[in-house]
Write a protein that binds this DNA or RNA. Structure first.
Lengths: 229, 229
DNA sequence: CCAAAAGTGTTTCACTTACACCCATGA
DNA sequence: TCATGGGTGTAAGTGAAACACTTTTGG
């Protein structure tokens, strides 16, 4: 028995807030639209969900097609169903957020067919649709989650110094942290592997490098450990 | 220029995990399906999203139509887009969770045209579709959120004793709490209004009644207060 | 007077916070 | 030798956890 649905259907899209970490700023990846509505305006990467792909797959496909991004950290954020949010027709969007290492991806994003660029999250241009609200929600989620899940490492290179790590938290949380207390706390978690290596080519004392030890982290979580900064 | 979308569209539904609090159990409201697929199986209340309503409106409409529930606490949970989750066709669902005062609603839910009933969350029957997974996610969300947002009051009558409040947290968090520490902590938050009344018709010393003071709570939040249990 | 739940303080321990100086390195 | 960031310890204060007995009320 074929199933027929008697009502008109909302369209379904995915949108992604891709965060990257600069020396001094949290950045968001935006794509310049070439088509109406909002032609020429900057917008979040995203697009329609196909019937044969999951939401996660759709989001990753769009990131690949529009920004050349692959293998990023990606999580669902929320779903937005305001009736008039798209002037063309009813479009419900499943918003996601992604974390990438800026160094790895700066080039590809800018060389895509469409115009893509990184903007400081606190200095965004006018965005299409309700994308400002989505970015705001994503930032709040990031600020909340980074404190109780070790997701911040996704923004850093695999090897990093404690200063880099601290700077990352300071930028995301928008407040300064005490250096000694931070180091004490983060090392006491026992999820950083001391690499016995130091930074290269710096004009001062070189910092020790660490790596997030995901293996140990997972084991500790299983034993009831709670990450918290 | 009319906008036409060249691909087939996923259908979009909402589903709701409605929690209620019994004397000793957290309960979930289920509806018995009368149509295929899964005819006769218990399922979460829910249904298709219409083009002229928001997701929140759709969820509330379904709760009203299927269970006679109105004016409940309702929040979005997550959106599930596994390709094969509905055997009929591609259906993406926006899951929600709701909190109701069991006493207020027990009757209406059971007198609806369809069969509706409350089940203990740790003793559910076989559910249709992927609804077990949705309940699990909702429970985890509730357990997490109840500790840093004052949403638990939605499960209690407007006037409640500290013992009732404590029992609520114990049932949701599935662990015992120390009475003296609990009372000290919760009273120190300063968001409970002492009503200078006591329980009636109990066969022992009557407990003082309190009310959640939402006004004060909002004010405190504005001033940087952080609810946390 | 008994059963049942309400109500109440103190001590200990762990964690958070505040805080300033010397060290290593390259220019 | 100077500039730059790297690296380190302690003391005070705050909040969490553990813990047992008396009070009130109705039956």
């Amino acid at each position: 028995m074929p199933f027929t649905y008697p009502y008109a259907r909302p369209a379904l899209t995915v949108d992604c807030v891709v965060f990257g970490l600069d020396v001094s700023d949290l950045k968001v990846l935006l794509i310049q639209r070439d088509l109406a509505p909002f032609a020429g305006r900057w917008a979040l990467p995203g697009g329609f969900v196909r019937v044969d792909e999951t939401l996660d797959e759709a989001a990753r496909r769009e990131l690949r097609e529009e920004a050349g991004l692959t293998k990023v950290f990606l999580e669902q954020l929320c779903t937005i169903g305001e009736v008039q949010r798209d002037p063309r027709e009813r479009v419900v969007t499943v918003a996601h957020y992604a974390l990438v290492r800026l160094g790895d991806h700066q080039v590809q994003a800018a060389t895509d067919a469409r115009n893509a660029a990184w903007f400081a999250v606190d200095d965004l241009p006018d965005l299409a649709f309700d994308h400002v609200a989505i970015v705001t929600t994503a930032l709040q989620r990031l600020q909340g989650k980074v404190r109780y899940q070790p997701i911040g490492f996704e923004l850093l290179p695999p090897k990093f110094s404690l200063s880099q790590l601290q700077r990352m938290y300071e930028i995301i949380l928008e407040r300064e942290l005490d250096k000694r207390n931070f180091r004490k706390k983060v090392l006491s978690l026992g999820i950083l592997q001391d690499l016995d290596e130091v930074e290269q080519d710096v004009a001062h004392r070189a910092a020790r490098l660490y790596r997030f030890d995901e293996r140990t982290y997972r084991q500790k979580v299983k034993d009831g450990f709670n990450f918290e900064l």
